[in-house]
Every structure is written in C-alpha cells, then in structure tokens.
Write a protein that binds this DNA or RNA. Structure first.
Length: 889
RNA sequence: GGACGUUUAGCUCAGUUGGUUAGAGCAUCUCGUUUACACCGAGAGGGUCGGGGGUUCGAAUCCCUCAACGUCCACCA
C-alpha cells in the first residue's frame, strides 16, 4: 500500500488556501447558494448578525469563541438547507476608539493635547485611519478563524448607510418626544471631558472616611458624608418623614459660614422615605448638583412646588468652582476635601471620623473616577407612553414596557434562561438613558440651533446660520439598530424583508445591558418587532486558573498564535467543547494542544480509510457484512441523531464531545481495528463521508481537506454546502449493539490476561477461555476479534449473527454458537435481586395506602393520583428487573 | 444589602425529568514501537459527589441549613 498522504496533518499547508477557495466559490452568500441550487428558493431563512468587534485593536480569545460558536450555527444551518446569512461588520465604538487614538498620539507622537493641537478635522482623520487599519486586521483575523461570513454584505456602524439609519431613528424618537434635552446630573469623566452612561460605570471598592458633623453649632441636625467638599453646595437635609427630626420638615435654615467665613448655605429640611435612620446620623445632607440620588430628590421636591436649588461647586475640569467660595475656587476635589475637614475640626463641628469601605464609580473607558455633575444633555425617556408600531399597534406603550413584554411573552428566548431575571431587574432599575457624548468620533447629533430655534431632522435645515449640536451619540445608540441597519434599513431592501427578524443573537453575557437590551429597545420601538428570536449568551474566556486574561497578568493567549501553532480547527474545538451558555470557559495552551492531537487523529482516520484497498473506487453504502459493521452503523445512527438534536438545541459542547467520543473511542479504537480483518470499502467510504459532514461545522478545514481527497480534486463541491447526514437514513440495530458489547468485554479480558501474565496472544486467548468455562461458547463466538487484536489471523470472519447465534468461519471450517453468557453473572444477579426486593416492598406499601379507603377519601385527588403514578412507575421498574433476572437464567 | 451561580478524582469538567457498580480528558505510573496515527495504543491507581440534617424502597440528583468561592445589581449619605 503506497501512501502519498502525509502522516501528520499540517494545518498551515491547507487553511489559507481553503478559505480562499470557499470565498471564491461565493457560497458564503445565501443568494449564490440559491442560484447554484444548494439552497431551495423558498428555504427558511437563518440569520445571524455578527456582534461587530470594536475597531480599537485586534481580536482576542473572546472574539475567537464568538466566531467559533456562530460559525458552527451557520455552517450547520447551511448544511440543513436553510437560507443562511451571517453578516459581518465592525463597530466604530466612539469613545473607546477616540480615547485609544488620543493615547497613541500622546505616547508615540509626542502630542500633549492631541485634540486641541490637531483640531477636529485633522484629529478625526487620524481616528478614521486607525479605525481602517484596525478593521483590516479584524477582517483578516476573522478569516483565519474560518468564519463563513458573507463579506459582500459587510457593514460598519459609522458608514453612510448606518448614519442614515441613526438620523432616521433619532428624528422619529425626537418627534415622539422620547428624546429630550434636559438639565440633569450626569456621570462626568474629567479625564475624558465627556459624559458616560450608568451602565458604563465600573464600581471600585476603596477605603474612605465617613465624617460626622454639623453645618454649624446652631443647626439642629447632624449629618454624615464621605465627601465633605461637596457639602459646600448643599441645599437641603433629608430626614425620614416619620423620624426624630420630622418637626423640622418644611423649615429653611441659613448657615452663615460654612468651610470659610462668609460662605452661606441655605438648607431646606425635606422628608424622604428613602432615609435610613440607622445609618450615619440618620439624616442626609443633600447635594443636588453632585449626586444623582440627591438630584432626584430635587426633582421630586420641585414637582411639589418646592425649589430647593442646585449649587454646582465642582466644575468640568474637576476643580472647585466660584460657587464653592473664594477660599476654594480652583482647588482640586481632594484639596478641597482636606480643607473642609480642617475647617470643621477647627470649628469643633466634627464629631466623628469613621473608616469605611466605599464603592467609587469609575469610567470604564476613560478609567478615572466619575464626577456627578449637572449638565444639559440629550436623553431617551424610557417611561413615556407613545403609540406603538407593528405588534404594539393600537396601544400606548413605553420603551420599558415594550422591551419587557417581548421577553416575557417568549417572543425572545434568552439562553441560558437565568439571564431573564437579570434582564428584567435591569429594566426595573433603568433610568433615562443619556445618549450625548462630548467626543468627536461618532454620529453627530442631528439637531441644529439658530438663536433660540431648534431643528431636528434627518438632514440639515434649509437656510443660513444654523449650527449643528457638536455632541455625538453614545456608540450603543447606533449599535442598538444593528440587526436592521445592517440589512439596509430604512431603505426597503430585499435583505431586510428576507432576513429580519434575525434568528439568533450570539454574544457574551457581559454586554447584555449595553447591547442586547438596547437592541430590543430600539427595534421594538422602530419596527414594532423583535430584533432576534433567540439570544445565546456565551461565557468569558479565562485562563487556566479562571482569571480574566489581561496584559498586566501577562496571561493572554492570542488566538492567532494558537492558530499558527496548532491550527484553526484545534483552536475552535478548544473554545467550543467544555463551554456551555452563560458559563465561563477556561483555556490553556495544553487544552488546545490536545485538540490538535484530535485533529490529527481525524486526519489519520481519513488517511487510513482512503488508503484501504478498494475504498477509492467504492460507492458509499451502508451495507454490512460483519457484526462489527452492523455495530458501527448502529452507533453512527445514534451519534447522528444525538448530534443533530444537540445542535438544534444549541448544545454545541455536548454535540462536539459526543462526536469526539464516537470518533476516537468507537470508530477508531474499535471499528477500524476490527475492520482490518475484513475491510468493507463501501461502508468505510460511507462512514468517512458521514463523519466528515458531522464534524464540518466544528472543524471546517480538516474536514474539507479530507473530503477533497475523497473526490476528484477538480470537483467544485464542498462539504460546506453538502447535505447534513440524516439519522433516519442510517440503519439502527439494537441487537448488533448488544452483541458487540460482549465482544468488547472479551477482548478486554484477553488483553488484561496478556498483560498480567505476559502471555503470547494466542496463549492468552486459550487461557481466558479456560478460565471462563461457563462462557466458553460466547468467547468462541468472538474469537475473530480477539484473535485479530491479538494478532492471530487464522480466522477469517464472523459471517452472520442472527437469533442470538453467531456463525464464525475459521480457517478449518465454520462453527455456530449461541450468543449468551455474561461476565460476573452472579454479582449482577445479587444486585438485581436486592433492587427487586426493595421495589417490591415499596409496591406493597403503596398498595396498602391506596387500598385504604380512608386515605383515598381524605387525601386530595392530585395526591392520590400521584401515588398511583408512583405505583405505575414502580411496577414498570419491577417488571424490568424481573425481565433482567429471567434473562440471566 | 439584594439576586444568581459554583462546590464531583491531583487539575479541568460530564453526570438529560431520583434507579444497576458515579464517568471522561489532562496529569501520574505500568506495559507496548503490530504498515492510519507516539500529535499513538492497552492498562492501573486515585472520589465518604463541600459540611450537617431531612424526604424516599432508593439521593451526586429533590427540600432545609451552614460554609467557601465567584458573578451581576443596588448602594448608606
């Protein structure tokens, strides 16, 4: 036998070239699949829009996991004959990208304040250039992962088409009164000179001090704070409406000197249920300008006609304003804090200092502590009721209600379902969404001003003298439109009609609020429809110790390095197997290496089968000749059925593990060994062809390469567009499975004997047979395999197994013997007898219970039913055990 | 403070409505270089299923409780 196929699979020799061939074929594009007859014209659509990676850099393992999972779904759907679209794109990521480029300009080109020095246009040009390069890298990396994305439809959250979608939606929301401009306390990043949304805050725990004091000696209510500097701007004290200071509610006090001589505070005492009398002093100093909670009190009081005022004492530069008084203006927050504390101490107003741990909100993007400040910003009102569209037509609904309803009524299924609760509690706590950002890179707000005139429109207003609002939109605003904007909306495109709502949204659970929830919000509002039917949330990729991968820990595993070293298929498998929805996956290089070994195993299975005589010319067929044949076909039936079911239910890890176990432990270790006695070329070919198709969604490259070798190399067919194996077309055979299990037991016994007593193969067979006299016939029947594995080849084959009788052809003639006998029969019988006794006893007690007229009369109907059910169950089990016992003889 | 999750072999994890003797991979050790594969094969050791209590004929599985770890949310001024 000559073998031109290399012994080891070298991914590098095939992967890039194979991806090139796939791409050139056009089959990533569903339209081409229909044209070429791969997909039926009326086939059910299957759509995934790729969560667009940020153009801030390169792909990491998290992206690789996302691409692997989605590609499995996509390739599987395509092979099932669905009209399958996987739409790629990238996200401009507004703030993140701008900050990144700013940092690079400072670090690498010596700028101090790049935005000021370059000016808007030149700076934006640099950002766009960076985004473009980053985009190119991302596209290349995605291709390296083998992703069957339809590149002809690629989109970008900041391109013209998407910009039109953004302006269109903004205008609609503005007209519906959902988008408004308001003066509110927002999260302000001093470093980034921009707002950020509530969800973008990351809380960091740090030690702090809680100071107990009074504003002045004659002020009746003591308060406590961790931020004394903000107290320079206090305008109220909140106490519990039923508490010990309730008599002061409604009064106004004037503190003549606070923090410095002449700095006057006007303090209103207000009642608020939220006050916890057991904490601090039991009263809260209200700083309406620098705390979102306090600001809400301000709004509530104002609604009651009581204006307690807003005094901003910290500016956008992070320093104290003139409102803080002459002694403080220009100081940093930290300096002002010390100074206020010193003053309180001096005046003998400070009663206590307590060390506490406090959570400080920091900006995820800008990485500094966020300063709450009052500013005029754009917001999306999540509570206002407006006339709904589509499925909400004819009703007055709020954004909150819409986004809640579609998940509650099952129109959107979230996997794993535990995230439903998370989702709902997020909606419950959702406040109006601040969408304006003071950065340049992004969608500029489509609002223009001229004097006191305000114009909102999809396009700039006619006439002279209009200035567009300089702010840009939160990146999640445009990302929220992704499922439909990427399909060409607001134009009435054929793609939008065919592929929306999309089928599955697959993404990391860490962006469920940022993105998933906002897509649901935007889509239910704009289209009155869901953006997707299923949300599949994958976990985070962590290192082998379960830590997040980060530069500082130096534990980053780069997907491209792993692809280079072990191949794409191995890298994909390492991310797919052992990863279930919502759970983090631990990754190590050893894990990837072990999957590289498996890839090679699959390769060698192909290599062996294809180099077996007769396989090249054979026509694939399920026809069986030996017991081993029938067994492996039956196993193939089972695995096909299970894997299909698993993929249908998004159990990718299980599907892959099941396939791996079958491939390695059943096909390679048992069947291929057994088949060496009497190879069945037509069946080997059929098995390989089926195996390659089952594995294709997981390991697209090696399967395609093996398939390539199975056919004429000039053929243009791909496994990628072949038909998914249908379990119902693979014969199932329970008898063969049972009988082969006996063979396996015997072989194992012989092997053990050889090893224990260092026997020659044939001696071991004889010894085993002698030792197990009672099972003599059984052993004899299976001698073919035993001898094969023991390298004794005087026996040709098992010719038939029927009616519990095996006929074996030996070199000297043939023998028929009954197939029976078990190893360790006695022990098994003992166990069954014990179980049987238990169950029988149980049945007796149930019978007694049910025969008791008193019980039946008194107990609730469903209790009685349940007892009856239990009885039926137990009876079934008893019968099964009895049957087993009979079988044992 | 609220919610959720995890705890099974040295490590990483399966264990599908409670049911024969709790499984796999890696690691360790032993044996084996037989023409698909040493990126291999055959085997061995190793677990009172986090602790305690309960329900049940029967519990890794269901209930209660405690503990450790993790995640998210809220946030106390």
């Amino acid at each position: 036998m000559q073998n031109a196929i290399p012994k080891a699979y070298e991914p590098k020799d095939y992967e890039d070239q194979m991806y090139g061939r796939w791409e050139a074929s056009g089959f990533f594009n569903p339209d081409v699949c229909v044209e070429r007859g791969v997909t039926a014209e009326d086939a059910e659509p299957f759509t995934i829009v790729l969560p667009p990676p940020n153009v801030t850099g390169t792909l990491h393992m998290g992206h690789a996991a996302m691409l692997a999972i989605e590609d499995v779904m996509i390739r599987y759907a395509r092979m099932r004959g669905k009209r399958t679209l996987w739409l790629p794109g990238t996200d401009h990521a507004a703030v993140a990208t701008e900050v990144k480029v700013e940092g690079l300009l400072i670090k690498e080109e010596g700028f101090k304040k790049p935005k000021e020095e370059l000016g808007r246009d030149a700076f934006l040009a640099r950002v766009h250039k960076f985004a473009k390069d980053s985009h190119d890298t991302i596209v290349n990396q995605s291709k390296k992962m083998g992703s069957s994305l339809d590149w002809s439809r690629e989109a970008y959250t900041l391109d013209d088409q998407r910009n039109l979608a953004v302006r269109t939606v903004f205008k609609q929301m503005y007209d519906d009164g959902l988008i408004y401009r308001g003066y509110r306390v927002v999260n302000w990043s001093v470093k980034g000179q921009s707002t950020c949304s509530d969800d973008e805050l990351v809380y960091v725990e740090r030690p702090g001090k809680l100071y107990f004091f009074k504003y002045s000696h004659d002020f009746p209510i003591p308060i406590a704070t961790t931020r004394p500097e903000t107290k320079l701007g206090d305008t109220a004290v909140a106490v519990h409406p039923e508490g010990k200071w309730k008599q002061y509610i409604g009064q106004t006090f004037t503190v003549a000197d606070f923090g410095q001589p002449g700095h006057t505070l006007t303090i209103h005492v207000i009642g608020d249920d939220g006050i916890d009398e057991t904490f601090g002093t039991g009263a809260l100093g209200v700083t309406t300008a620098h705390s979102p909670i306090d600001f809400e009190m301000y709004m509530r009081e104002k609604a009651r006609g009581n204006d307690i005022g807003i005094v901003q004492v910290i500016g956008e530069d992070g320093r104290m304003t003139a409102n803080a008084g002459a002694a403080y203006v220009g100081l940093t927050v930290a300096e002002a804090r010390e100074k206020v504390v010193a003053w309180l101490r001096e005046q003998n107003l400070l009663t206590e200092e307590k060390d506490v741990m406090q959570n400080v909100g920091t900006s995820d993007r800008f990485t500094d502590v966020v300063e709450p400040l009052p500013k005029t910003q754009w917001f999306v009102d999540v509570n206002k009721k407006i006339p709904g569209k589509g499925r909400f037509a004819g009703r007055e609904v709020s954004l909150k209600e819409m986004m809640s309803e579609v998940v509650r009524d099952g129109s959107i299924e979230i996997l794993p379902d535990k995230f439903n609760r998370t989702y709902f509690s997020w909606i419950d706590n959702l406040r109006d969404w601040c969408i304006s950002r003071q950065v340049w890179f992004g969608h500029q707000i489509p609002v223009w001003y001229r004097g006191t005139e305000v114009y909102c429109g999809v396009n700039a207003p006619e006439g002279e003298g209009w200035t567009q609002d300089p702010d840009s939109l939160d990146t999640w605003f445009s990302a929220g439109l992704w499922t439909f904007s990427a399909l060409g909306w607001p134009e009435k495109t054929k793609d939008f009609e065919t592929f929306h709502p999309t089928t599955v949204l697959e993404t990391g659970y860490d962006i469920i609020f940022f993105w998933v929830a906002r897509m649901i919000l935007m889509t239910t509002y704009t289209l009155g429809e869901v953006p997707f039917k299923t949300v599949y949330l994958h976990g985070l990729v962590r290192d082998e110790q379960g830590r997040k991968m980060s530069k500082s820990l130096d534990n980053i595993i780069n997907p491209l390095d792993m692809i280079e070293k072990y191949g794409t298929d191995a890298t994909r498998l390492s991310l797919l197997l052992g990863s279930t929805p919502g759970n983090d996956v631990k990754l190590s290089e050893e894990k990837i290496a072990s999957f590289r070994n498996f890839t090679n195993k699959l390769w060698n299975i192909g290599r062996y089968i294809l180099s077996t005589e007769g396989v090249a010319e054979a026509t694939a067929s399920w026809e069986c000749k030996t017991l081993a044949d029938r067994w492996i076909v039956a196993r193939m039936h089972a695995v096909t059925e299970e894997v299909t079911k698993a993929l249908d239910t998004h159990a990718f890890s299980y599907a892959g593990e099941r396939l791996r176990d079958f491939t390695w432990s059943e096909l390679a270790d048992w069947y291929l060994e057994a088949s060496k006695v009497a190879p069945n070329p037509a069946l080997l070919r059929q098995l390989l062809s089926t195996l390659v198709r089952l594995w294709h969604p997981f390991m697209p490259f090696v399967t395609e390469v093996i398939a390539d070798m199975m056919r004429d190399t000039t053929s243009s067919e791909f496994v990628m567009v072949s038909r998914w194996p249908d379990a119902s077309e693979i014969p199932s055979d329970d008898t063969a499975m049972r009988e082969f299990a006996l063979v396996q037991e015997c072989v194992t016994a012989v092997r053990a004997m050889r090893q224990t007593y260092q026997m020659s193969p044939s001696a071991a067979v004889v010894a085993h047979v002698m030792a197990e006299e009672s099972t003599w016939s059984h052993i004899t029947a299976q001698t073919e395999l035993i001898c094969k594995l023991a390298r004794v080849s005087s026996i040709e084959r098992v010719t038939a197994v029927a009616d519990n009788t095996a006929t074996t052809a030996f070199g000297w003639g043939s023998v028929s013997i009954p197939l029976e006998g078990q190893i360790d029969v006695a022990a098994q019988r003992t166990r069954i007898e014990k179980d049987l006794a238990d169950v029988t006893r149980y049945i007796d007690t149930l019978h007694k219970k049910l025969d008791n007229a008193d019980f039946v009369a008194r107990a609730a109907a469903d209790v009685v039913d349940k007892e009856r059910e239990k009885l039926a169950e137990a009876t079934t089990r008893r019968d099964a055990l009895t049957a087993q016992l009979v079988q044992l003889g």
